[in-house]
Amino acid sequence: MDMEMGLLSLLRKLRSSSDKELRIVLVGLDNSGKTTILRQLANEETPHITTPTAGFNIKSISSNNLNLNVWDLGGNAKIRPYWRNYFENTDVLIFVVDSSDRKRMSESTGEFNELLKDEKLKSVPIIVLANKQDLSSSMKAAEVAELIGLVKLKDRDWQIQACSALEGTGLQEAMDWICKCVKK
C-alpha cells in the first residue's frame, strides 16, 4: 500500500516537473482574429466559425512539453478596461493585429502602448502577431512592427510574427518562440 502511494507521488512529481503550467494572455482589437488563433492552436475542426467574444475564452494547449493556459480576452472596446484583471502572473503576452486594417492601426497602437505601461506586465515578454497575411492587402510584419513601435522596446523580450489564423500559418513559429522564451 505504502509503496503504491510512494510510486504515485513520484509519478506526480515527475509529471509536474516536465509539464510546467504557463499563463498566456491573448489580446488585441475586436476582429483581429484572437479566437480563431486560439481555436487553431487547440486544433479544433472549424476554427473559422467564430462569433465576437463577449467575455473571454480559455483553452489548455500543450506545446514543446509545456502546458499553456491561453486566455483569449474579448477585444470589444466595452470590455478592454477589464483586460488588466487577467494580467496577474502572465508569462507571455500575445498581441494580435489585423494587418489588413490600416484604418485602425492607430487604435491598435494606442492599446498596445497602454499595455506596455501596465505594472503587472512589467518585463513580460511580448509577441505581436501580424495576422491575416492570407489577404493580399495586408501589411508585412516589418511594417506592423514599425507602426506599433515594437522596435523601440528595450525593457523586455519581444518578437514579431507574421501569421494567418485562417490558414494556420505562422502559429507554430509563435509557439516555438514562446516556449524558448520561458525556458530561458
Partner: peptide
C-alpha cells in the same frame, strides 16, 4: 452602433461565422 451592442463603428465584421443568419 455600440448603443445596440455592436463592437465598433461598423457592424459588418461582427457577423463573422454566423453570416447573414445572425
Amino acid at each position: 452602433w455600440q448603443e445596440i451592442g455592436f463592437q465598433g463603428d461598423d457592424p459588418s465584421t461582427d457577423f463573422r461565422g454566423m453570416g447573414i443568419l445572425g
